[in-house]
């Protein structure tokens, strides 16, 4: 199987994630889409690692996972806090940071 198919898959997943971030309002879903984008990148990293025959991409993907784990912890905490205070998980409601 052609290895570039993994890259196409990665691009498709990333695009789905990006579109999800832009169009969905539910904070949890947006969050999941962000995770999807991160994992799409991981897939690309690993694929490139394979293509180039070294471990650089794999190491980078571990970094991404660690960052993603931290992000999950903080992001979920923020979402829960916002939900507690506003009884809503819609990110359009949390738009106080405008002019």
């Amino acid at each position: 199987m052609d290895i570039s198919n993994y890259l196409y898959l990665s691009a498709i997943l990333f695009t789905i994630g990006a579109v999800g971030v832009v169009v969905r309002r539910n904070a949890i879903v947006v969050f999941m889409c962000v995770e999807l984008m991160l994992n799409a990148t991981n897939l690309a990293f690993v694929t490139f690692s394979r293509i180039h025959g070294n471990l650089d991409g794999q190491v980078a993907s571990f970094f991404t996972m660690v960052v993603a784990a931290c992000e999950v912890v903080i992001g979920l905490a923020i979402i829960v806090t916002i939900y507690r205070s506003r009884r809503s998980a819609s990110i359009d409601d949390a738009s106080l940071l405008k002019r």
Binding site: V21, S95, R99
Partner: peptide
């Protein structure tokens, strides 16, 4: 300033 409407999704779209 009108660009800064406070909607995270707009910001994300702009970034994208």
């Amino acid at each position: 300033r009108n660009l800064q409407n406070g909607f995270i999704r707009t910001y994300a779209l702009v970034m994208l």
